[in-house]
């Protein structure tokens, strides 16, 4: 099993989740957000930062987080963006302990579940998210 890595603790609505720090390229607070031209299960919006468009992931699909208000932050992860309300803090691996049972957070996009103080934190599987293709079935009319 790979050793734990430093994570960024992120809050969206009432939910907390972790992203391995090495994936986080930038955190942006002032960002325009645009709807997509078709319905995709895994991408919710598009944002443009410094002229470059990024796909904003659908948190409901990847994290099972239902959050009605518009998030205030965008975390750039490679060529995609994750929306959130707050980047709480970074946490070093020594402060985290692995949890064997991750059934409560079971999605194929959760790499593992860790405990920080008395909170259970799911850590996103960024590679799995990057490899997840948008589902769009072509049904000619």
């Amino acid at each position: 099993m790979n050793p734990l890595e430093p994570i960024l603790l992120v809050k969206s609505g009432q939910s907390l989740f972790g992203i391995e720090l090495r994936y986080v390229r930038e955190i942006v607070s002032d960002f325009p957000i645009f709807p997509l031209p078709a319905k995709f299960r895994n991408i919710s919006h598009l944002t443009i930062l410094r002229g470059t468009p990024y796909a904003v992931l659908d948190n409901e699909y990847y994290l099972r987080i239902e959050h009605k208000n518009r998030e205030r932050l965008i975390l750039l992860i490679g060529q995609m963006a994750i929306s959130a309300d707050e980047a709480v803090r970074t946490i070093s691996p020594e402060q985290l302990s692995r949890q064997e049972n991750k059934t409560e957070h079971a999605t194929s996009f959760i790499r593992e579940v860790v405990q920080f103080r008395n909170r259970i934190i799911p850590i996103l599987d960024i590679q799995a998210i990057l490899n997840d293709r948008p589902d769009f079935e072509f049904i000619p009319t």
Binding site: F34, P35, L36, P37, A38, F40, I43, L46, I48, G51, T52, P53, Y54, A55, G78, Q79, M80, L130, R133, P134, F136, F138
Partner: peptide
């Protein structure tokens, strides 16, 4: 602006352009 990264996986679309303040 060509779609790159995850956006390039969107079928049927090749690029985006500015349209208005609230819409691309």
């Amino acid at each position: 602006t060509p779609l790159t990264g995850k956006l390039s996986q969107l079928p049927l679309f090749s690029a985006i352009c500015n349209f208005s303040a609230n819409s691309v």
